[in-house]
């Protein structure tokens, strides 16, 4: 297992996937293998914060996770996903707002939140304001995360926050905005609780809010 953690954390993709296959064939439980990946992700996240790793490593980690999940699927016991859901840290509603179709940052946030124990509902890109509000009612998230690279995205973000106010639920939910150009001006304009220009810091806020 230690070898697997190291292979993933060091971006040694072929080794990591070979090890995953071998462990599965040997009868190792997928849950334990997943734990190894989580441990590696923690190391990767830490290296990202320290300025050792950057976007390429996060994308690569996401890719390795995806392939590993595919490999583990046939070995997963039925019903285990419900047990996994029960232990989630919080619910996160995610999407790129209306008018914007950028998804790379959003996808990284989704992957990291998932591995950090959040139940993530990803609405995709160019998500209409009303869709955010409808999904809020249906999903009842703890946090709403809105992504957007373009300055025009701020209007859509603000309209979602205004909508949450009208529904009388703004004080029940945390709102975070993310994107390459967001800053305190945008955060204030939108009426969000926090802003993040990278995926790792966005996840950090979310964990703090859930008391983790």
């Amino acid at each position: 297992m230690e070898d697997l953690v190291k292979a993933v954390a060091e971006m040694m993709e072929d080794e990591a996937l070979d090890l995953t296959r071998k462990l599965l064939e040997q009868g190792e439980s997928p849950a334990k293998i997943l734990d190894a990946y989580k441990e590696a992700l923690v190391i990767i996240g830490k290296r990202f914060e320290e300025g050792v790793y950057f976007v390429p490593e996060l994308i690569m980690a996401g890719e390795m996770m995806k392939t590993a999940s595919e490999l583990m699927k046939p070995y997963m016991a039925k019903g285990s996903s419900a047990a996994v859901q029960a232990g989630k840290k919080g619910k996160f509603l995610l999407g790129t707002v209306a008018g914007d179709i950028h998804d790379i940052g959003k996808d990284m946030v989704g992957m990291l939140l998932d591995i950090n124990g959040f139940e993530v509902k990803d609405l995709g890109v160019d998500v209409p304001v009303q869709k955010f509000l409808d999904e809020y009612s249906a999903f009842q998230p703890d946090i709403v995360g809105m992504s957007g690279l373009l300055t025009l995205a701020y209007d859509s973000m603000k309209r979602v926050v205004d909508g949450l106010k009208t529904m009388g639920v703004r004080d029940k939910v945390k709102v975070i905005i993310g994107g390459g150009q967001v800053d305190e001006h945008a955060c204030k304009f939108v009426g969000a609780d926090a802003w993040a220009t990278d995926a790792v810091s966005g996840v950090k806020y979310s964990l703090q809010w859930m008391g983790c």
Partner: peptide
């Protein structure tokens, strides 16, 4: 594509 070229850095 962004994802493709980033992974190519390793692969």
């Amino acid at each position: 594509g962004t994802k493709g070229v980033m992974m190519d850095l390793f692969r």
